[in-house]
């Protein structure tokens, strides 16, 4: 396994682990059970920094795991995150994400787009899922995503620098 694959595998595993831990920890300490979408933040980071292929593959794997752990129809998160990864991959090499402001802004936009995309998938596919685009739950989730983004980005940047892999503009 080369450095690049090792980095992706490691990052993907860490994100999955965080998601699993998050699914256990949050309900124990908070009542509202609204969690930040760490997976989406990771997809943004990888898609913008490493391109469409990495973004969508990353999104697909994350989606499969999320579908398994959640009660939504199997494939919903996979489809959603593949599309997100692919679309975000278009920004690869075109924008520069600094440490705080731009990532937070980008994540906020992407979180909202994710909800819109979810609503669209629910319309296209015969899925019984109640999606409200403008809801307090969504606002809280977007807020949590914004708060967590600098930390998640800093974490990946740290691993990135340690492994020192080359960027691929695809």
């Amino acid at each position: 396994m080369n450095k690049r694959n090792l980095f992706f595998f490691l990052s993907c595993s860490i994100v999955l682990l965080i998601i699993v831990i998050q699914s256990v920890v949050v309900p124990k300490f908070f009542n509202n059970e609204i969690m930040p979408d760490i997976s989406l933040i990771a997809i943004i980071y990888f898609a913008v920094n490493y391109g469409k292929n990495v973004g969508q593959t990353f999104g697909f794997i994350q989606g499969i795991v999320l579908d398994s752990l959640s009660g939504v129809p199997f494939g919903l998160n996979a489809l959603l995150r593949v599309i997100m990864g692919f679309l975000l991959g278009f920004f690869n090499g075109k924008i520069f994400l600094d440490k705080f402001v731009l990532p937070a802004f980008f994540v906020a936009i992407c979180s909202f787009i994710k909800i819109l995309l979810l609503a669209l998938i629910v319309i296209i596919f015969p899925i019984k899922l109640n999606i409200t685009i403008f809801s307090v739950k969504n606002i809280i989730e977007i807020g949590l995503n914004i708060l967590l983004t600098p930390f998640v980005f800093a974490f990946f940047r740290f691993i990135d620098n340690k492994i020192n892999i080359s960027r691929d503009n695809t």
Binding site: F74, G75, A78, L79, F125
Partner: peptide
Amino acid sequence: VIISSIML
């Protein structure tokens, strides 16, 4: 997308 859609 096809795989995800089939799954869905």
